[in-house]
């Protein structure tokens, strides 16, 4: 069992899902309430990572982060080394890869809040910002937790994007799924099994949490 890879993966997933809450909430809010006619194009773009092969996504992220792109050059001049094949590069790739898994639950729970409640809040003197924090957030708790947990679980298990963007550098970019691949390549099946089992159990636990929280009888519970 490679604990270095395990903790690296958990750290990556925690950072990515945390950032996705910060980035995803405003994007999801905009997607839910904007009346811009071309909004559907943004919706489609945000959902692309669900259908694209991770290698395609990883390839473009790699190109975008490489030393020939403006972002890559800026990062190089600022830090002295390239963004590709580093942990920050891995975070950027994973952010894009897990984006829809955060934004879709956020947006659908925002959209499920009755518009009449928002109107009532407005006529009681609350502007959009206060209404968001006093009405939308508490009523979207299930969706917010689901988005966080799903993007966490999804980042835990990613393979293609990590391999393309991060490579396979122990302690820097080698995540559990890549570690498993390596162990299988070297014929070390029992170690691969251990690691795979841990990933399986964690993923199951996270998904159980998501579905458990969204269960109706609990959703009406006193802590909501």
């Amino acid at each position: 069992m490679n604990w270095e890879a395990f903790w690296l993966t958990v750290r990556l997933a925690a950072i990515v899902s945390g950032l996705l809450v910060v980035i995803g909430i405003p994007v999801a809010y905009w997607l839910t309430f904007s009346r811009w006619r071309w909004k559907f194009l943004v919706e489609a773009a945000v959902s692309l990572p669900i259908v694209l092969p991770p290698t395609v996504l990883g390839f473009y992220v790699l190109v975008a982060l490489g030393s020939r792109s403006p972002i890559g050059r800026w990062w190089e001049s600022a830090t002295g080394h390239t963004l590709a094949f580093t942990f920050p590069g891995l975070v950027i790739g994973s952010l894009l890869y897990s984006l829809p898994f955060a934004i879709q639950p956020f947006a659908s729970s925002f959209g499920a809040v009755d518009r009449r409640l928002l109107q009532a809040s407005a006529s009681l003197g609350d502007g959009p910002r206060q209404t968001f924090f006093r009405i939308i957030v508490p009523l979207s708790k299930g969706g917010l937790i689901a988005g966080f947990a799903l993007s966490f679980a999804h980042t835990l298990g990613e393979f293609g994007v990590v391999l393309m963007v991060g490579g396979n550098i122990p302690g820097v970019t080698r995540t559990i799924s890549i570690d498993i691949f390596d162990q299988v390549q070297t014929g070390n099946y029992s170690s691969a099994n251990q690691t795979a089992m841990i990933l399986l159990v964690i993923s199951f636990a996270v998904l159980s949490l998501v579905y458990g929280l969204n269960r109706r009888p609990w959703a009406a519970g006193p802590w909501r």
Binding site: Q119, A120, A122, S123, L124, G125, D126, G127
Partner: peptide, 8 residues
């Protein structure tokens, strides 16, 4: 709406 002071 939030500045109108209209009860609804």
């Amino acid at each position: 709406a939030w500045e109108r002071r209209v009860g609804y």
